[in-house]
Amino acid sequence: MGAGHTHDLHVPGDSIVHRTAPEAKLVAAFVFVLAVAVTPRREVWAFAGYAVLAVVWVVASGIGPRRTITRLAVILPFITFAFFLPFIGGGDTTDVAGFELSTEGLWGTWNVLTKAVLGATTSIVLASTTPVPEIVRGLERLRMPRLVTGIISFMFRYLGVITAELGRMRTAMIARGHDPRWLWQAKPIASSAGAMFVRSYERGERVHAAMLARGFRGTMPTFDDRRAEPTDWLRAALIPALAVSLALGGLLT
């Protein structure tokens, strides 16, 4: 059953961020990330402001700095390329520790790095304080089509089941002497991907039969009629409102 916990990013708690309605948090996170994304990269003071706001968010959610930093590591593969920009960028150069680096490239690195870190921190706060079913419910209340939220919740529900199945197939291969160390040994991996596809498809058919057996007629039922209270929206609006004013400040200077 352990596999099920690997995609469960939620950290149980009772902080003010945990208690805020999910749809308010979703909108807040989206607006904050948007404000960060549109801010011109040279407005360093605005980014300092965003960083302060992000830290406030992390502290208020009580998820702890260590967990936040560990989870931030997931963006590393995506931002690695940004470190090449100063070496391959053109235009004026700057001397950094004996290296002639492109000024444009350095700004590029700064841009990617700060925006990625701020965006990832926002999603970490959101995912750590909101269980996935709540996020899906929040999206539903924000009028996302039921079909889309249905797909998200099925993906979440069966990710662990399918990962465990893949794990068993891998173990079965290793048990029969397979050792996928070199590229030319990749064939069994490719064919197991095909087998996984067929298995998942068959499971889909069985799940559909189970849904029909309980009266499913094509529309997923809703399970929560509660809406976010005005206090939820006020609470959630604070940080994105400050972020938007920083962004406007940055855009107007």
Binding site: V132, P133, R157, Y158, R206, A209, A210, A213, R214, F223
Partner: peptide, 17 residues
């Protein structure tokens, strides 16, 4: 109908749902 593989039967995010 209770199906053989409970993972086919339990498809919602929570037990209550």
């Amino acid at each position: 109908m209770v199906f053989q593989d409970a993972d086919d039967q339990l498809f919602m995010p929570t037990v209550a749902e």
